[in-house]
């Protein structure tokens, strides 16, 4: 199976969907002539031309809203946000318009739009460019949110998102763009709402999403090597819809849970996951659920400290040992 990067996997997904369906249009700041601020869309303008791959001005509320309007008439826009942090200036469009219009029209309208881009800290750029809005957005019924952690999932989730008839917001991660993994050439999708057990184990379940999955896998390795602990890592992949069953099955197997995410702790995704586990698997727990989130402050600029603010293998190992104590 070919080994390609997370970036290339995303590009392959978009290229295949552009070929498959002429209603698919890529749009965003610097996606065409510049080849993408993070080179995710590199070469696609040359391959598909300016009708299908469209540069926008720096005008998120305008062009995201335009994409939503076009999607109501059946166009399938794939909109790039250079950073998901920039979604905040387009929040009314993203939440009120895309998220509510099907409901408010009693099901007469749907918005098959994808909004994608990186949503992560750890890049030494300060608080305004380091937001992870998956929990904020997933708290709105009408919206779907996915957070791929690997190249395989990036391609499969992106293709599912583009074919989905609802607004799907794909949160990528600049730190993962160069990560490599096996990705099939052939057509496949990863359905939304299906978690993936990235590592099997018996002593502890770690539930994570996005780059926190990679961090957790590193921590799991350390826990096994240095502490003899067998850790299962469940990658949510999709925040809304959420695969509750895979999480609960793992909890029933290990009876101990650590939740890891890059969000800040207050009302993070893991607050919902913790509620799920205590409500549906309370009797299975041998210890309280613990969490590792980003330290609760705006993202710090200083790189040495930002690495401490984010979940990292050392923090995950330390918290895991508390759950196991």
């Amino acid at each position: 199976m070919p080994v390609i990067s997370y970036r290339e996997a995303l590009r392959a997904a978009m290229r295949e969907e552009l070929q498959r369906d002429e209603k698919v249009v890529l749009m965003g700041e610097e996606v065409a002539q510049f080849n993408g601020a993070y080179k995710v869309t590199e070469g696609l303008l040359k391959e598909f031309g300016p009708k299908r791959v469209v540069d926008t001005p720096i005008s998120e509320a305008g062009f995201i809203g335009l994409g939503i309007g076009a999607s109501m008439l059946g166009i399938r826009p794939v909109m790039e946000l250079m950073f998901w942090s920039f979604s905040y200036v387009a929040f009314d469009q993203i939440v009120n318009n895309a998220g509510n219009i099907r409901y408010m029209s009693g099901g007469l309208i749907n918005c098959p739009i994808v909004i994608r881009g990186p949503a992560n800290g750890g890049t030494n750029v300060g608080a305004t460019h380091s937001h992870t809005p998956e929990a904020i957005l997933a708290s709105h019924p009408g919206i779907k949110v996915v957070c791929p952690a690997t190249p395989y999932d990036a391609k499969g989730l992106m293709k599912a998102a583009i074919r989905d008839n609802d607004p799907v917001y794909v949160m990528e991660n600049t730190i993962l763009y160069n990560d490599k993994g096996e990705v099939p050439d052939e057509d496949y999708i990863v359905p939304l709402g299906v978690a993936d057990v990235k590592r099997t184990g018996t002593d502890l379940t770690i539930v994570a999403h996005g780059r926190a999955v990679i961090t957790s896998l590193k921590a799991a390795e350390i826990l096994e090597q240095e502490h003899g602990v067998s850790v299962e890592v469940v990658d949510l992949r999709s925040i809304r819809p959420l695969d509750e069953e895979t999480v609960l099955a793992s909890v029933r197997k290990t009876h101990r849970v650590l939740l890891v995410e890059e969000n800040k702790p207050f009302c993070g995704v893991d607050a919902q996951v913790a509620y799920l586990i205590q409500s549906k698997a309370f009797d299975e727990l041998d210890a309280p659920i613990h969490r590792v989130s980003s330290i609760d402050a705006p993202q710090i600029y200083c790189k040495r400290l930002e690495d401490q603010q984010l979940p990292n293998p050392a923090r995950v190992v330390a918290e895991a040992l508390k759950v196991l104590a």
Partner: peptide, 19 residues
């Protein structure tokens, strides 16, 4: 009427899980 995929859920739809 929250999600098209839920109102039309079937083998061809792209969503699973709890939404």
């Amino acid at each position: 009427h929250i999600y098209w995929e839920e109102d039309n859920r079937g083998p061809q739809t792209t969503s699973r899980g709890t939404i």
